[in-house]
Simulated scan of single mutants.
Amino acid sequence: MRRGIALVTALAILVLVNFSIYEKEQHLAQGEIMYLELAPVDPRSLMQGDYMTLRFEIGNQIRDAVGSNGPADSEREEISEGYAVVRLDERGVAHFVRLAASNTALEDNQRALFFRHRNGRILFATNAFFFQEGQAERYEAARYGRFRVNEEGEPLLVGLHDEGLVRLDPVDG
């Protein structure tokens, strides 16, 4: 009996994990491409081991908008998550328009981008980019993060790009 329960539980876990993987693969394959401009970070935090700390300029704009949409900090509950309405330019770079309660009621050239607000920082899919050991110099030219954004506005980081939106792929070595 216990063995049967353990087998069913293991099978259910495998199904859930594989479904989650399938969803992420679909997100990466079919999500709309959107670029977010990187915001400057403390140079000491730029490269730490085999990853780069990421902040996005649009995150600063969202944080400012969250702060201006209510009472003083001491009287306001911190927004834990929400949507930023963005407009994509001809290159696919996102520009902040406004905050929104949902990902609906958008104009044709607008998209909703899901964000989380944690400890005074606006977070998207990630706040770090990991790379192979010895590749740090390759990513120093990074100016944009390339995301795949699904219909729910959830972004997944797929790469870093330079000022001309050229992908900064790792150097084979």
Rank of each mutant, 00 (worst) to 15 (best):
I58G: 13
E81C: 00
Y139N: 02
V66Q: 02
A136F: 11
Q48V: 14
H117V: 09
G59T: 03
E90L: 15
R121W: 07
N109H: 05
L113N: 05
F96G: 15
G120K: 02
N109V: 06
A72G: 08
R146V: 10
N103F: 07
L123R: 07
Q132A: 08
Y144D: 07
D50W: 08
R44G: 02
H117I: 07
L106W: 00
I79P: 10
D50M: 05
D89E: 03
D64H: 01
V85W: 07
S80A: 08
A112K: 09
A94R: 00
L123W: 09
T104M: 01
I79A: 14
I79F: 02
L88Y: 02
M47T: 07
Y83H: 12
Q48E: 11
Q132D: 10
R116D: 04
A100W: 06
V97A: 15
R76V: 13
A101L: 10
F96W: 04
Q135W: 09
R138N: 11
F114H: 08
N103K: 11
T53A: 02
R111M: 11
G59E: 04
E133P: 15
N127R: 05
E107R: 10
R148G: 12
F130Y: 09
G67R: 01
E81R: 05
N127Q: 07
A136E: 15
F124I: 01
S68R: 02
I58S: 13
F130T: 06
R111H: 11
S80Q: 05
E81S: 07
N60R: 05
V41L: 07
T104S: 01
F130S: 03
G82L: 08
R138P: 06
G82F: 11
G134E: 14
R138E: 11
G67M: 03
Q110I: 02
E133W: 12
G134I: 11
G59C: 01
T126P: 00
